[in-house]
Simulated assay, not measured.
Amino acid sequence: MNNDEVLSLIKKLGEEDSYYLRKHARERMNERNITTSDIKDILTNPKRVLRTDTENEDGITSYKIEGGVHNHRLALKFDEDQAIIIITVMDKR
């Protein structure tokens, strides 16, 4: 997938609430005061793919994206059912 296709898929799945957060992402949300509303905003308003990692141990490509009104960042991947797995949540830095 190219970056535009990735962003389109993220937006589509975000609008369908087809995503879940790993424990690590939930912990980072608490540390960084990022809400579930912020997560929804990032997913439904993705702005750009910052990095694509294809050399993951599990063989699944992951993406670091930026989006939402506050330009927060997420690391995510897609599962076999085309749901978003949110790996971690980052402040804009």
Rank of each mutant, 00 (worst) to 15 (best):
L43E: 10
K12E: 14
I85Y: 05
R28V: 05
N2I: 14
T44K: 10
K92F: 13
I65M: 01
R73K: 15
Q82D: 12
S37K: 15
K23S: 10
D4P: 09
R22D: 12
I10D: 02
T88Y: 02
K12R: 14
Q82G: 01
I84Q: 11
I39P: 04
L13C: 13
E27R: 08
F78R: 12
K23M: 07
I60S: 11
N71A: 06
K77Y: 01
T54F: 02
P46R: 02
D41W: 06
N2R: 09
R73I: 01
A25P: 04
T35P: 10
L7V: 11
E57C: 10
H24A: 10
P46L: 00
I10N: 02
T36A: 05
I65R: 00
Y20F: 15
D81W: 10
E27I: 08
R26A: 02
E15Y: 09
G59L: 03
R51T: 08
E80A: 10
L7A: 10
N33F: 09
Y63N: 05
K64E: 10
G68C: 05
L21M: 08
L74G: 02
I10Y: 00
I34K: 08
G14L: 02
Y20H: 12
R22P: 02
G59A: 05
N45L: 09
P46S: 07
R48D: 13
E15W: 06
I39H: 03
